[in-house]
Amino acid sequence: MSIIVGFVPTPAGEAALTAGIAEAMLRNEDLVIVNSAREGALVDKSVAAADVLEQAGRRATEAGIRATVVQPPYRDDLADEFLDVAREVNASLIVIGLRHRSQVGKFILGSHAQRILMQADRPVLAVKADGALS
């Protein structure tokens, strides 16, 4: 089994990575770091640069965790793609970062985190950027 972390190059993504590494150490499990881009998108600020992903993987290995970084493209829905990866790797825990968004922002743009929380068929650890657990 493994722990899966949704990683984006933001404070919330960094908090999720930190929590994922801690959980992988505690549970003695591998870590799968997921950073996904919309298929065909020319620019996507949630996509981490190769050096950022390499550093994320290195943080895990320096902590004694076997880590894999994956960047599966998604076509229609990021939450569905992320949950598919969680099932594929038989994740025992999903770790995601949360950021504050207004109700209007959630209504207009939707919330990937909310969909993952509601639709996941395994435990989800949601972490705020300040490190507080939700």
Rank of each mutant, 00 (worst) to 15 (best):
D77F: 00
R59M: 13
T61I: 14
R59E: 11
A91L: 09
R58V: 08
Q55C: 06
M118D: 15
L109D: 10
A67W: 00
P72T: 05
V104G: 03
V70D: 00
Q114L: 02
R115C: 06
R75N: 06
S111T: 11
T61W: 10
V69T: 05
A63C: 03
L98Q: 07
L53E: 08
A79E: 04
H112Y: 10
I96V: 11
A91I: 10
Q119W: 02
V52S: 11
T61M: 10
F82H: 03
N90D: 14
Y74E: 07
A60P: 08
V124K: 04
H100Q: 08
M118Q: 15
P123D: 07
G64P: 04
F82W: 12
V95W: 02
L109E: 14
R122A: 00
E88R: 14
I116C: 03
A60Y: 05
D80Q: 12
I108A: 09
E81N: 09
R87F: 13
M118W: 08
R122I: 00
L78A: 12
Y74C: 08
A113C: 11
L83Y: 14
E81A: 13
L98D: 03
D77V: 03
H100P: 14
E54G: 10
R58C: 02
A67C: 02
E81R: 10
V95A: 00
V124D: 01
A91D: 04
G110F: 06
I65C: 10
V95I: 11
R58E: 15
R59D: 12
A113N: 05
A91F: 07
V70L: 02
P73F: 01
A113K: 01
R115G: 03
I94P: 01
V52C: 05
A91H: 04
L53A: 13
A120Y: 03
I65D: 04
R66D: 07
E54Y: 15
I108S: 11
K106Q: 15
I65F: 10
A79N: 05
L83T: 10
T61A: 14
V85K: 06
S102M: 09
K106L: 05
E81C: 12
E81I: 02
A50K: 15
S102D: 13
T68G: 04
Q103Y: 09
R99S: 06
S102P: 04
V124T: 04
R99F: 00
S92H: 01
A56M: 08
Q114F: 03
Q114T: 11
D84E: 09
Q55K: 14
Q119T: 12
A48R: 07
V89F: 01
F107L: 15
L78M: 13
R99Y: 02
L98W: 07
I94H: 07
A60F: 11
I65A: 11
F107T: 15
S111L: 08
L125Q: 11
I96G: 07
N90H: 15
R87Q: 12
